[in-house]
Simulated scan of single mutants.
Amino acid sequence: MSHSMVGETVEIDGAGNTSIEAYRARPAHDGRRGGVVVIHHMPGFDRATKEIVRRFAELGYDAICPNLYHREAPGAQPDDAAAAARAAGGVPDERLVGDVAGAAAHLRGLPTSNGRVGVIGYCSGGRQSVLAACRLDVDAAVDCYGAFVTGTPPADHPLQVGNLVPLLGDLRCPLLGLFGNEDRFPSPAHVDELESLLRRHGKQFEFHRYDDAGHGFFAVNRPGYRVAAANDGWDRIATFFAAQLGGR
């Protein structure tokens, strides 16, 4: 199989039928395959996130990341857009669901789609990945250290979000969770609570926890990057999506 790919900025229909910016990468060859919606971290629609989208294309998927901050700061640099979004209290949950729905519909509309779409998110995107999986018909979800799926945000938290405990019974697909044992949000106790709730609801899930890893251990451009945890996490993501999305 050729490893050549096409990466480009596109426009998709997001929440409220609003056109928003997105970054899409896909293998250059034909053939049916699954799709992956990447939900970016709180720092925004940045170079590191686009590299993750390209990595999924290299793994054999059509992948797309919607710019969740497009409305607050169209055309702005990622740091400025993220600051504008934080000042507004973050991305409202309903809008997030609509933007991810638009991204999933875009992937399913591609001629190469096998109809199956997964969602993955990092940091705030990890929580949003679980939210999307509770509200939308996606086929697989990955939560990379998403804060406040369980637990309560501190008073000084910049995002106006609550936990997702009331929604967890509606989770519609298998969930892979990857967490650092040195993280505070989510802490090991938060992950324990999430595991207990998912088991109580009879959901299909698989969690992995890493010692000597805190928040952001996948982020190669940040001090919290942990090589062993990130490499093992990527292997587990690849295995999980191969099983759930097919078409590789």
Rank of each mutant, 00 (worst) to 15 (best):
R55L: 09
G102H: 07
A25K: 10
L96F: 08
A101M: 03
F240W: 00
R86I: 12
Q77S: 15
F218N: 15
E182I: 03
P27T: 02
F56Y: 15
R184N: 11
V100K: 04
G202E: 06
D93P: 14
R172W: 04
R54S: 13
D211I: 06
G16E: 10
A85W: 07
G60Y: 06
H215F: 01
F148W: 02
K50M: 15
P66K: 02
V142Q: 04
E11M: 13
L164W: 06
D139V: 03
N231S: 13
A147M: 00
C144P: 07
L68M: 11
L197D: 10
R55K: 12
A25D: 07
R172C: 11
P66N: 01
E193W: 00
F240Y: 08
D62A: 06
P174L: 01
A238S: 12
G224I: 00
S124Y: 06
H190W: 07
S196V: 13
V138A: 09
G89F: 08
F148I: 01
A238E: 03
A147K: 08
N231K: 14
E8H: 09
G34V: 08
A84H: 12
V119G: 00
H201W: 11
Y225S: 07
L164Q: 00
L107P: 03
G169Y: 09
Y69W: 09
A83P: 14
G109V: 00
R135M: 08
L131Y: 05
T9H: 11
E193A: 01
R200D: 10
E193V: 02
P111A: 03
I64Q: 05
D156C: 08
R226G: 12
N163V: 01
P223K: 14
G202R: 01
A155I: 06
V100G: 03
V220S: 14
P43Y: 07
C144Q: 03
P154T: 06
I120W: 09
V36P: 14
D143C: 09
V130N: 00
G169V: 06
V117D: 05
C65H: 00
V142T: 08
A87M: 09
T239V: 12
P166N: 03
Q160I: 14
A87C: 09
A132S: 04
L167S: 09
I39K: 08
S187A: 08
E195H: 03
V10Q: 02
D192G: 11
R236D: 01
G177M: 04
E94S: 08
D80M: 13
S19L: 13
D80E: 15
A73E: 11
V100E: 03
A243M: 04
M5P: 00
T152S: 05
D80I: 07
L194D: 00
E8W: 09
A141D: 10
P153R: 05
E94Q: 11
V149Q: 02
K203M: 12
I12C: 06
A133N: 05
A228C: 13
P153A: 08
A83V: 14
A242T: 02
L131S: 05
L159K: 11
G177I: 10
L176V: 05
Q77T: 14
I64F: 05
A132P: 02
A219Y: 15
D62N: 10
